[in-house]
Nucleic acid binder design. Structure first.
Length: 442
RNA sequence: CGGGGUAUAGCUCAGCCUGGUAGAGCACUGGUUUUGGGAACCAGGGGUCGAGAGUUCGAAUCUUUCUGCCCCGACCA
């Protein structure tokens, strides 16, 4: 992509409404534009990141055996009246009346709807287990939206719903999601720690919040240092096998958010292993049994022929929030530092002197070569001074920068810079190409 | 939903106290000189000063009502 033909409205100054770093950087890097409190347009650069995250989440859901569908944003109120939540859910639910005066709502979540879909078609234990998920925009009319996309009113969320005959089976479904989440966050370049969450009236140990540590996190969290470098299952993990060893490994040590914090238990950890930090919740999984299947009559026949309500769980990942969380966890004073897995482009190619014949030729040649080799390149071909280009490229945080100017072209060298480490090296165009190909296509 | 702010050019802000023809920097357009870490100069374009009502000869400025947005708290993926 040539920057001169892209839409990347970079801001030199920070809009005053942005308080936290991810919000500031997302506005400055031309990723989002606010349309109303907590409601954002995703501009091309931001949209590209959102799609990368979306796709990784999808791939890991699919790998775990979950099946994708797509439910609507607008739901009829009747389903919610059936479960009893129409009255329970407060003003956070955006209620709408259509032209026929029917009560509708903009979905804040989809338990009722997916239960309705399930009960219409599944009647036997032979069709279980089943896990249905979608990635869809939700709306919660927060009293006080803030932190940009981290706490918006409209947000993109992956929500999965598992259906099982028994609680024991539901635990297996829970474990599958647990492991899928570990893999998902790792692929996104994040260290996410599963922490005990409040299970509310359901009770039990099957609920965890996945927390990313970041200095600017919204809440205080406490955990054992071991979590910071626990291995994550590789892509060959068998989701039909017994996943409990992995879950056990990740639940053996102390980890809790503020609300669930137990000072005494935390004190038992050797002092040097105690981690007390700020965290961002990027996922939440929980088992809730027959809370919806009971009132909504979602029952299946067991092997004995008797109908029983299915055991359900739901599993959320805040996809749009993750974009902010990744920035919170990965930036410096100059801007964003994208993990390679979610970077909108792998390489930023800077022409230090657009219009200079030899420089243009060198840039065009390399741009074409890299692109043809399957690498994604944002080519800054604007006629602009070098300083501004360097600042822009650091701000938008592409993992690799290729810097080509008249001096280097004359001596046959270009500069390759790693955004994260800041390391630069002068290479011939061939060497730079080979290095990038070896690094990025591996 | 309680408390506190704020609203002037695309962005950051001054002007308001003490009413008198709407400003600066950056950005944008044209030009000249520059050119390896956010250049300089010259010439331009761009604002019903959030909206309504009032006071006044005259309102960005004073009074008042409304609205948007932001921050703190309670609440939450």
């Amino acid at each position: 992509m040539r920057l001169s033909r892209y839409f990347l409205p970079i801001l030199k100054e920070t809009p005053k409404e942005a308080e936290i770093v991810s919000h500031r950087l997302m506005l400055r890097a031309g990723m989002i534009r606010q349309q109303s409190a907590g409601i954002y347009s995703w501009l091309p650069f931001g949209h590209a990141v959102l799609q990368k995250v979306d796709q990784i989440v999808r791939e890991e859901q699919n790998r775990s055996g979950a099946v994708e569908l797509l439910m609507p944003t607008i739901q009829p109120a009747d389903l919610w009246k059936e479960s009893g939540r129409y009255d329970d859910y407060g003003k956070e639910m955006l209620r709408i009346t259509d032209r026929h005066d029917r009560d509708m709502l903009f979905g804040p979540t989809n338990e009722e709807m997916v239960t309705d879909i399930f009960r219409g078609s599944v009647k036997s234990y032979k069709d279980l287990p089943l896990n249905l998920y979608h990635i869809q925009w939700k709306f919660r009319d927060e009293v006080r939206p803030r932190f940009g996309v981290m706490r918006g009113r409209e947000f993109l969320m992956k929500d999965a719903y598992s259906f099982d005959l028994t609680k024991e089976d539901a635990r297996k479904s829970y474990n599958r999601m647990f492991v899928a989440y570990l893999r998902t966050y790792q692929r996104l370049g994040l260290t996410a720690i599963p922490m005990k969450a409040d299970s509310g009236p359901i009770g039990g140990d099957m609920t965890h919040e996945f927390i990313v540590l970041a200095d600017t996190g919204e809440s205080e969290v406490f955990c054992h240092r071991d979590f910071l470098d626990l291995p994550v299952p590789d892509e060959n993990i068998d989701f039909d096998g017994d996943l409990s060893p992995w879950v056990d490994k990740y639940t053996a040590q102390y980890a809790a958010t503020e609300e669930m914090h137990d000072e005494a238990a935390f004190a038992e950890i050797p002092e040097e292993d105690r981690v007390s930090a700020r965290g961002i919740e990027v996922g939440h999984i929980f088992y809730f049994g027959t809370k919806y299947s009971e009132p909504m009559n979602a029952r299946v026949a067991g092997p004995d022929g008797v109908d029983v309500p299915v055991h359900m769980g739901s599993y959320g990942i805040g996809v749009s929030r993750l974009v902010g969380a990744i920035i919170e966890a990965s930036h410096d004073e100059n801007g964003i530092i994208w993990p390679e897995s979610v970077a909108p482009f792998q390489i930023g190619l800077i022409s230090l002197k657009a219009g200079h014949e030899a420089t243009d030729a060198a840039c065009e040649g390399l741009y074409e070569r890299l692109t043809n080799a399957g690498m994604s390149v944002l080519y800054d071909d604007r006629d602009m001074r070098a300083g501004g280009k360097f600042a822009s490229m650091d701000l938008i945080g592409l993992p690799w920068q290729l810097i080509i100017g008249p001096k280097g072209v004359e001596s046959g060298e270009i500069e390759l810079k790693n955004r994260r480490t800041g390391a630069r090296e002068s290479l011939t165009p061939d060497a730079a190409f080979n290095k990038l190909q070896a690094t990025l296509n591996s």
